[in-house]
Design a protein around this nucleic acid. Structure first.
Lengths: 327, 327
DNA sequence: ATGAAAGCGCTAACAT
DNA sequence: ATGTTAGCGCTTTCAT
């Protein structure tokens, strides 16, 4: 590794001059500058980010914590976050919490140890206290982590209403809502969607059945079982609201049982990832605006890093994406 | 930020002793050790990874370059890589090359500047020379980058044969193979699958039509158009081989045109991601073993980092996953 | 067993 | 305009 000292020596100047020339900071004679740049080029010099980081006490890296990238919602979210972070000069570290071996705590420790300058967390698995302990910049997607940690989420209340409207318009009589276990009741913002949907359904005289699932299982096999069991247990349900991946499983299982979609059973997928739109028939979706969520999360985090004021809460728009599973 | 100096002062010992106690390196009296640990706990001390990195000239971070996480194959690959890297004590930086603004070169520079200890690249977009220039640890997924850069890929030759077998068994007469443009002919290992498939088809007296697509477009809209155009241009094709995402689009478009699958047209998806298995009817797939690919890539990279010998090439197993689109 | 001091590569304050 | 020097926080000789 050739360092700045080598460059300075080769150019016959002091270290500071070399640093100034290379960084364009401070005065340096044009001719000297040329010599230094030449020397740097010849030696194929690349400054060590490591040293710079130590000096500035920042790494330029942001961690994104998600349950798993195998779930398209989190993959698309991470993708969008990476893009916005890059625009702002930051790199993105991914941390998947689904792995058996590791814990969110290990990832959180990276913050304390200055490996990352901030964290965007989109996980469901951990006790909030650990987050509260940290005074470093953290923002949360869709999960309330308490004071001082900005919460970015979609306008789930509206999302739920939209879903209810379309179930009603489609003439549903009994809707199954699949949502995370009540163990975490109130912690996940998306639960609001189920509550508002249920309320609106009941107001229309439509039955609403809430089915709880483990809020932190991400394997497709579990989704499949959930879909199978729910269809078995409620053969008379004529509407289903579930997040994208689950909805895709429901669609597949329903078709395999020769249940006509959408004639006998209507499906609304909550999330609206691109992947969900690949199904046949195309899923009718309530979409969260993933790029907007990502952009909000990034800008909130960067504000926190700069100690600028950040709203404790921001709700991003949701919308109805017509499909063929709920006319 | 409380540092090791603070801890040492509080414990009434020298800095070096504190360092030894905290790291369990070298001799330190049990009682002294206890005092130091106590002090560290009280001050809520966390060592700065930044300083340690500078000293050791390593960051403990590996970069994974993929076109986009919105594609399930790369999402699942990255997920698996992250898991294996974590097991080996490394963190994972994701770099998506699909963004308009950035270039692979920027990401490559991170290697030179010591921000990352190595790179696993799975992109399609760049000139190989830039990789050759770097003498840092790099391994490549499915794309030959030249001497010194280990290539990890699936046994695509077998994959292609498997596909051909199943097309033949299904009684296909004219198979459409959708693959990346020949601009990069020979660079992408997966092309081997198309070549071997074609050869096997022809040997059976089955027509094979190769359709080139842009090898570096990842947006779903482009996939949709590709599927539409191909179906329009070749209404008599009764078999289609395409990568997962494309295959999902083909399936959707075919069904929308009321083409019976698999009676009139058989589909084989090449990749076999979990997501592709969510379609209805379920796609028949040639699966690459993503965990094995990821594990091979990680272990090759770590060997390169430790200057151990690494095979220039390793082929991972593929297999046939029965589905409902090609009996 | 412990502490003082050097140094990882860089930047910035302070001379000159 | 340029050079000298003092750290950033840590680990690791090398004395003691």
């Amino acid at each position: 590794m050739t360092n700045i000292k080598d460059v300075a020596r080769r150019a016959g100047v002091g270290i500071a001059t070399a640093s100034r020339a290379l960084n364009g900071s401070g005065y340096v004679a044009p001719e000297t500058k040329r010599k230094i740049e030449e020397a740097a080029r010849q030696l194929n010099y690349t400054p060590s980010v490591l040293a710079r980081n130590l000096l500035r006490n920042r790494s330029g890296i942001i961690a994104v914590m998600v349950p798993t990238l195998a779930n398209p919602f989190f993959a698309e979210f991470t993708q969008a976050v990476e893009r916005f972070l890059l625009e702002q000069g930051y790199k993105t570290l991914v941390c998947c919490t689904v792995h058996p071996a590791n814990s969110e705590q290990d990832y959180l420790d990276m913050l304390e140890s200055n490996l990352v300058d901030g964290i965007i967390t989109a996980t469901h698995s951990f006790n909030d206290a650990a987050y509260q302990k940290s005074c470093k910049p953290i923002v949360s997607l869709d999960r309330s982590l308490g004071d001082g940690i900005p919460l970015i989420s979609s306008d789930h209340c509206r999302g739920g209403l939209l879903a209810a409207e379309h179930f009603a318009a489609a003439g549903c009589k009994k809707v199954l809502q699949i949502c995370g276990s009540d163990v975490q009741n109130g912690h996940l913002a998306v639960e609001e969607a189920h509550l508002s949907c249920r309320e609106a359904l009941l107001a229309e005289g439509i039955a609403s059945l809430i089915c709880f699932t483990d809020w932190n299982r991400w394997d497709f096999e579990y989704y499949r079982q959930t879909a199978q069991r729910s269809l078995d247990a409620h053969p008379d349900a004529d509407g289903i609201l579930a997040s994208d991946c689950l909805a895709m499983h429901f669609l597949r299982e329903a078709l395999q049982r020769s249940r006509k979609v959408p004639e006998e059973i209507r499906l609304i997928a909550y999330d609206g990832t691109d992947t969900a739109r690949l199904s046949s028939p195309v899923l009718s979706c309530i979409t969260q605006d993933i790029p907007v969520l990502a952009k909000s999360a990034v800008s909130a985090l960067l504000s926190r890093i700069q100690n600028l004021p950040v709203p404790e809460f921001s709700a991003c728009p949701v919308s109805w994406l017509p499909g063929a599973t709920c006319p």
